[in-house]
Design a protein around this nucleic acid. Structure first.
Lengths: 191, 191
DNA sequence: TAGATTTGAGACATGAATGTCTCAAATGGG
DNA sequence: CCCATTTGAGACATTCATGTCTCAAATCTA
């Protein structure tokens, strides 16, 4: 029986393993548990000690991704000031989570039918609320629904993460690419 | 020994199987060969007679998707008239292929390292050329690279296909949602 | 109708990934 | 330095998708 001795590294280790796993799964969603373990620098046995099976790992990654998105929403203060600026701050805050999001985006297909995780629904609601606020303030056009705008934001985050990973776009342009396209579109403003 | 009797339905059958497979794999990318067969209304044995293994099926789907995209580029006459209108026509022409594209988009992760299929590179080049033409004609802003614009178009197609499938956005808004967001962005024009 | 071909259902072996277990080595705290 | 805990490497059984094969039924053709 362990004495429940919490050396201060236990939580950190778990977090690091999750991030390494995300880093691999983002670009190879079907990676083996063995590959995940190797990517995290631990053995498969230890990986299975920390996460009871692949499902548990994916669930943990889902929680991590959700937590990061909610943290990003907080840090971006999406309720303050013009909605356009809030979107810009949000995209910037979401950048570190984009890779993980890209993985979860493709993985969620498998979880369909599980009945949407309630956490994502709450997150969605906050994103939708941001775009709705922009519309009601007269900033955003009303012929694009808030739901579509938030879906589009997810899609752009995933494309951009993938494009950066493949070296097709520069990492430094990640935020501006997404925010400028989402807000301003491709057509030149003539005003 | 078969007499190579081509009843005129053979090609059609293969095409229909591919479309049914795409319809399933789009929303469940890890579906079993058995599930694919059932979705196509045939037995697993017959499925394996037409496509020698899962890889062959995915390759065939890739070819189909590529062919549909190239067909869409042709039908949209992307070299004619204003680039904005060309983009609108292109998005409309791509709509039927969006589901298949969504599947291939997530599947291509697995093929990384195979060295990009040359077909997709050619397709990409044509998309990029369209956006470059728009820039050179002064229609599109130059701070968003043509490469990013085409990547963003892929991402929006995937998001939109997924959102329509989940019932979050109306099917009839598919084309306008993508084209209007990609071209005009979320912010209201004040001109 | 008679013959040829294709299909479906199922059995079968194969390979891969998984989860569990054991034991020796490494790590860390007291 | 000693002891408790954790880790890594590997063996092992299990599960599952896959690909192949057979045979009877269905379909098509002449």
């Amino acid at each position: 029986m362990s004495q429940m001795g919490y050396s201060c590294l236990m939580a950190v280790d778990r977090e690091r393993v999750l991030r390494d796993a995300a880093g691999l799964l983002m670009r190879k969603s079907g990676a083996t548990m063995d590959e995940v373990a190797r990517a995290a620098g631990i053995s498969r046995a230890t990986l299975n000690r920390q996460f009871a099976g692949r499902d548990a790992l994916v669930r943990a990654l889902e929680e991590l991704g959700l937590a990061e998105c909610e943290s990003a929403l907080e840090r971006a203060r999406v309720d303050d000031g013009p909605a356009s600026d809030a979107v810009r701050r949000l995209v910037r805050a979401l950048e570190p989570a984009a890779g993980l999001l890209a993985f979860l985006y493709s993985e969620n297909q498998l979880f369909e039918g599980y009945g949407q995780n309630e956490g994502w629904a709450r997150l969605d609601a906050r994103m939708v609320a941001l775009f709705r606020r922009g519309q009601e303030a007269g900033e955003f056009r009303i012929d694009l629904s808030p739901v579509w705008l938030s879906e589009a934001l997810y899609g752009l985050l995933v494309s951009a993460a993938w494009a950066v990973y493949e070296g097709r776009v520069a990492s430094k342009d990640f935020t501006s690419n997404i925010a400028e396209l989402l807000l301003g579109g491709a057509v030149r403003r003539t005003e």
